[in-house]
Design a protein around this nucleic acid. Structure first.
Length: 360
DNA sequence: GTCCAGTCGT
DNA sequence: ACGACTGGAC
């Protein structure tokens, strides 16, 4: 049954989730122990390895280096040998560095606080929270990619989870559901859910213990979550933005009926190869008008810095063959413009280059 | 070939 | 905030 009550809160998810985890969790060796050292090793290994593949490495590692002390006293080469095949060897080196650091401080085990764990080499927010909760029972959320996926679906979150706002939303929900009595099992259960039922490109919602409070399930949007912000690298371009002025009117060109910003009006601009030079921008470039600051804007993958040229024409007819119009101040104010031109319009009105029309 | 994952270095 | 690391999944 989906959403039998309109007043379901996230807290109600913890108990069913833990019941499901108790019944269905996969029996990994690191789940048989609360030894902080064993938990730490497993979390670092699992950062880049599927759990099934990590099992043998973890068993072997615990046989060769069964305690924090044995690791701290090990030879570099032996440690790297035990890691061989897992890749990301800096993580093995960080394990060793951390073990020796603790040994040098006279500590026989890992510190039982999120902040102290977080300060060790190779331990970031995720690993610190995982060890703190699983080994020490501290109520901190261990948020990894699984958790981001699960909670972005529970909330049907449209914010990108790889941006600050989206991650904050996810963490808020996570902490709200996190039970004080079994935080470690809860963190493991969220990750187990993401690894088995709530996978990136397939879901088994019918078996999910949180189906009853999942908004994405309700709306059929599970596979659209999580939303990620654009990862494509942006490219910086320099170009020109032309403001033709005649009296109190400015020239707005109309964009072609297809493609980027189809049919929009805007100040003529160019920034090859994102936007080719046009007769208008060439005219502005060749005019002796001084540059008057710049406008920055970005779209798709481009980041633009456009040098502003204000070109005063005494005979507006010079542009009569161009596709566009001479806009009065009120027409300019009413026009629908893309972001860059909008910034330019604000500046023209703000600096009094064009008299701002009275507010309608 | 492209995307993804925690942490570190910049 | 962004790329490097590195191997696996797709």
């Amino acid at each position: 049954m989906v959403h039998s009550s309109p007043n379901i809160t996230l807290e109600e998810g913890a108990a069913p989730l833990l019941r499901w985890y108790d019944a269905c969790r996969r029996p990994f060796p690191w789940r048989e122990t609360n030894d902080p050292y064993a938990v730490w090793i497993s979390e670092v290994m699992l950062q880049q390895t599927q759990a099934a593949r990590g099992v043998e490495y973890h068993r072997r590692w615990m046989r060769i280096f069964p305690t924090l002390r044995s690791l701290a006293e090990a030879e570099d080469d032996d440690v790297l040998k035990a890691w061989e095949g897992l890749g990301y060897y800096s993580r093995a080196r960080n394990l060793l560095r951390a073990a020796r650091l603790l040994q040098a401080r006279g500590l026989a085990t890992l510190p039982a606080s999120f902040e102290e764990l977080r300060a060790l080499p190779g331990i970031g927010p995720y690993t610190a929270a995982a060890v703190a909760s699983i080994a020490f029972g501290l109520p901190v959320p261990a948020l990894d990619a699984n958790g981001k996926r699960v909670f972005s679906r529970l909330l049907d979150l449209e914010e990108p989870v790889d941006r600050r706002a989206g991650e904050k939303s996810v963490l808020r929900a996570f902490v709200q559901m996190l039970p004080a009595d079994r935080p470690g099992d809860f963190n493991s259960a969220i990750m187990e859910l993401g690894a088995t039922l709530c996978a990136p490109t397939s879901t088994l919602c019918g078996e999910c213990p949180l189906e009853f409070l999942c908004l994405a399930r309700l709306r059929g949007s599970a596979l659209e979550r999580p939303v990620l912000s654009r990862q494509t690298k942006s490219e910086s371009l320099e170009g020109i933005l032309a403001v033709f002025v005649s009296g109190d009117r400015v020239f707005l060109r109309r964009r072609p009926p297809a493609g980027l910003w189809a049919n929009f009006e805007e100040f003529p601009w160019s920034a090859p190869p994102a936007e080719q030079e046009s007769p208008l921008t060439e005219l502005a470039r060749r005019s002796n008008a001084d540059c008057d600051g710049e406008v920055r804007c970005s779209f798709t993958k481009w980041r633009l810095r456009l040098a502003v040229r204000i070109v005063r024409l005494h005979a507006p007819g010079d542009l009569e063959n161009m596709n566009g119009r001479w806009a009065s101040p009120s027409e300019l104010a009413a026009a629908t413009l893309p972001a860059g031109s909008r910034k330019m319009r604000e500046r023209l009105f703000g600096e009094g280059t064009i008299p701002p029309p009275p507010p309608s």
